[in-house]
Design a protein around this nucleic acid. Structure first.
Lengths: 85, 85
DNA sequence: TTGACGTGCAACCTTTGGGTTGTGTATGGT
DNA sequence: ACCATACACAACCCAAAGGTTGCACGTCAA
């Protein structure tokens, strides 16, 4: 969970996904490259998605040929109060 | 900042430091080992402290022979609302 | 002042993480 | 039926992160 948030690329992905709730892997990759000027391959993005899914921050649903990604902020909400009184 | 929270050992350190606000490096190391059953050297702890200090989560003050560590939760508060509407 | 204690610093080792390349597979438009 | 598309899987590469070992330094009690 914390490790999932540790990478700057993944944080950018969450920025995009919190703006537009549903996107395919390809869409998201294109957006990152164009709007945030990062140079990254789709395969690398797929790995990041896997990490985010494992942490429960992103869920995905297979729709035919596409894979829709959905952002979920609950894990972040739940865990941040650990050291906050 | 996010990377500082990514390591489980550092999170345990923050647990201890949020309980007892002021501790020396030695105290903290001993506490981690005994209460959380981690096997770690003082030098490794010093590295973790350096990371936490760089992130602003822990500040330290040299008092004679000792180095007092103080927990600071402000950076955490400030940054976690990034994806929460 | 001498020696133990708490700490700082640097070189090294090992594992993990992020990335690329390459190939394979299923879907869908034409 | 065909081929481009969107994706999955696996092997490999490289840099960074976490950890250890070894030694040096300042502080303080006896």
């Amino acid at each position: 969970m914390f490790k999932a948030l540790a990478d700057p690329t993944r944080r950018l992905m969450l920025d995009e996904l919190s703006e537009r709730r549903e996107q395919t892997l390809y869409e998201l990759t294109a957006r990152l490259i164009m709007r945030h000027e990062v140079a990254i391959s789709r395969q690398a993005m797929a790995k990041h998605i896997a990490v985010l899914e494992k942490a429960g921050i992103v869920s995905s649903e297979k729709r035919g040929k596409f894979r829709m990604l959905v952002f979920n902020d609950e894990p972040i909400r739940g865990v941040m109060n650990r050291w906050l009184t």
